[in-house]
Nucleic acid binder design. Structure first.
Length: 575
RNA sequence: CGGGACGUGGCGCAGUUUGGCAGCGCGCAGCGUUCGGGACGCUGAGGUCGCCGGUUCGAAUCCGGCCGUCCCGACCA
């Protein structure tokens, strides 16, 4: 491609309000443009990168036996009703009606459609299957952000495994796990595979692939000494035991005028009401039902754990009026002692605790001497608290680290939820029918692209790894007006293309500084610079984008040298 | 959804407080000089000031409503 004919609209200024580095660079370097919040156009450079990502994914999916499909992006409401997700997903699903006023949804994911197709498999002999597609997904995110990292319309590679039984599912899941690591490594990423919450997908087990980055929205807890790693939505930790009294006298009220927070109470009764001795009482509305959620005073609730524990589709903190109506007190004076009207969920860290302090369900009054097991009617004990950096690893006791990252992939063991809903059953070798056991696996392509940029850039611009670079080489002609330079450039470009290399020829009549700066901004991994001074001595220059080391090389040696560098770059992430 | 901010040529912004010819930088076009690390001079094109309504002799500016976008918090590839 000739740069003079290409649509590569680079900008001198940073776009306004672009916080994430990848957003800034992808806009400035002419890869993407925003159409509306959460909807981006892929310009030619962006499209080329996405195609390369797609090719890597296709190769690795085909390598584990995947078959590619292409399903509709728009679905009749009926199939979503059948799985129960028409109601469960809520506002995050785009919905529309056709001219006959029939209801449709824009595909949020494709378990339903694939499960429907799976009804055509009659026998265990047809299993296992690995089905995938690369297709647009629509999610009405409440707040799209960070450029292409979190959008409302994006491309996803989604795949689904269909198996007769759990061991089959485990095998398909592990195949995906390994394939995903290969895919991301070939993109030049080094993701961490962590235990995760399954969220709206349901299912029993899931693993996320996280690229460490300050622009990421996920927080991950890891243990350097034993390798434990989990999303904080799921992570646990071992707590130091708290020395409680052997026995405590009866619960007793005491006046706490004006006190509304854990910190105020701890300060007012120094030594007797440290946060670890307090019970934090939160009220949530879980699928419409008011529920009291208890945690230790110094712990924070991890809402996803609450959702997972209750299998709720919608939770929210209760409003002050709702709380007052149910418990007779304002937030800040709540407690579970004697609260029999509403169910109580308690965090495991409270189990067996004695000598605790909590609200009395009367404003300005608290109670002491609480023995949790004796005095509170706990409906369920569950892990609800958010782990904090420095707490002990649940596996080995070493201190945990907590860091931020970008979720580029997520794999789920689904089970039989969808196959049962759609009647996707096969007969085994005894003639007995079984619902197909499903797994589901996703990669967000544009997000993965942005993650590469977050991971691989410098102060001058993007530094693409060769396997995903829009062009592998840019041939920069320093003086376009010089006939010998252009002739040499045309010849080298022809030879490189004949050798299978993706080449961009910078034949623009611009000053050299502009051309170098643009090449660095858009991040082409290798540059071949041709100028009259060098040509007079029979040499051209080769430059690596990463580090910008430049060396002169004989014109005749240039093509094999560049091909060797490109070939080496293409091997990134391959075993 | 809660909190904060913004909307003015393609991009980045000033002008709004105190109503009075719509500006600056970059980019773009033409000419000339330059040209191996984001050149310079001259000339020029380009704007429904987000939209609708109101106040006023007069509105980018004041008032009301709406729309859009960004950032911080609760949700997900």
């Amino acid at each position: 491609m000739r740069w003079s004919r290409a649509f590569i609209p680079t900008l001198r200024d940073d776009p306004a309000d672009a916080e994430a580095v990848s957003h800034r660079l992808l806009v400035r370097a002419g890869y993407i443009r925003q159409l509306a919040a959460g909807h981006y156009s892929m310009l030619p450079l962006g499209q080329r990168v996405r195609s390369k990502v797609e090719r890597i994914i296709r190769e690795e999916m085909d390598a584990i036996g995947g078959q590619q499909f292409h399903l509709p992006a728009m679905h009749p409401a009926e199939i979503w009703r059948k799985s129960g997700r028409w109601d469960a997903i809520g506002d995050e699903m785009f919905r529309l009606r056709d001219r006959k006023s029939a209801e449709f949804a824009l595909g949020f994911t494709h378990e339903e459609v694939f499960a429907l197709l799976a009804t055509e498999l009659p026998s265990y002999r047809d299993l296992p299957q690995i089905w995938y597609q690369i297709q647009t997904k629509f999610r009405d995110e409440p707040r799209p952000k960070a450029g292409v990292l979190r959008v409302r319309e994006f491309t996803m590679k989604d795949s689904y495994t269909l198996d007769l039984d759990r061991p089959g599912l485990d095998k398909g899941f592990d195949l995906h796990h390994v394939a995903y690591l290969r895919i991301f490594r070939r993109m030049g990423l080094d993701p961490v595979d962590v235990q995760a919450s399954s969220g709206i997908m349901g299912g029993t087990e899931s693993v996320e692939f996280i690229v460490p980055s300050p622009a990421g929205e996920d927080r991950i807890a890891t243990c350097a000494s034993c390798g434990y790693r989990a999303n904080v939505e799921r992570a646990t930790s071992r707590l130091d035991p708290v020395a409680d009294p052997e026995q405590v006298p009866e619960v007793e009220e005491f006046d706490t005028p004006g006190i509304r927070t854990i910190a105020q109470l701890a300060a007012a009764f120094a030594g007797d009401a440290d946060p670890v001795r307090q019970i934090k009482s939160l009220v949530y509305v879980i699928d419409g039902e008011l529920t009291l959620v208890l945690l230790r005073g110094d712990h924070d609730l991890q809402e996803q754990k609450l959702i997972d524990a209750t299998l709720a589709t919608a939770i929210r903190p209760a409003r002050a009026e709702e709380i007052r109506e149910a418990l007779g007190a304002s937030p800040g004076s709540l407690g579970a002692v004697g609260a029999s009207e509403i169910p109580v969920l308690a965090d495991l860290a409270l189990k067996g605790r004695r000598g605790m302090v909590t609200g009395a369900n009367r404003d300005d009054v608290h109670v002491r001497n609480v023995d949790v097991d004796r005095d509170i009617n706990v409906a369920r004990w569950v892990d609800l608290r958010q782990v904090v950096e420095g707490e002990a690893c649940p596996e080995c006791g070493s201190p945990l680290e907590v860091w931020k990252g970008i979720e580029v992939g997520h794999i789920f063991k689904l089970g039989t939820k969808f196959s049962e809903a759609f009647g996707a059953v096969v007969q085994d070798d005894q003639g007995v029918s079984h619902p197909i056991v499903m797994g589901s696996y996703g990669i967000g392509l544009e997000r993965a692209m942005a993650a590469v940029v977050e991971w691989s850039h410098d102060e001058l611009g993007i530094v693409w790894p060769v396997p995903v670079a829009p062009y592998e080489v840019v041939v920069t002609v320093v003086r376009v007006g010089d006939g010998d330079s252009m002739a040499a450039a045309e010849r080298l470009v022809g030879e490189l293309q004949a050798g299978g290399v993706d080449v961009l020829l910078d034949d623009r009549d611009e000053r050299p500084g502009v051309k170098f700066a643009d090449a660095e901004l858009i991040g082409i991994p290798h540059r071949l610079t041709i100028g009259p001074n060098g040509l007079a001595r029979g040499v051209v220059e080769v430059t690596r984008r990463r580090g910008l080391e430049t060396e002169e090389i004989d014109v005749d040696r240039a093509v094999p040298e560049v091909i060797a560098r490109v070939t080496e770059g293409r091997r990134i992430g391959r075993a």
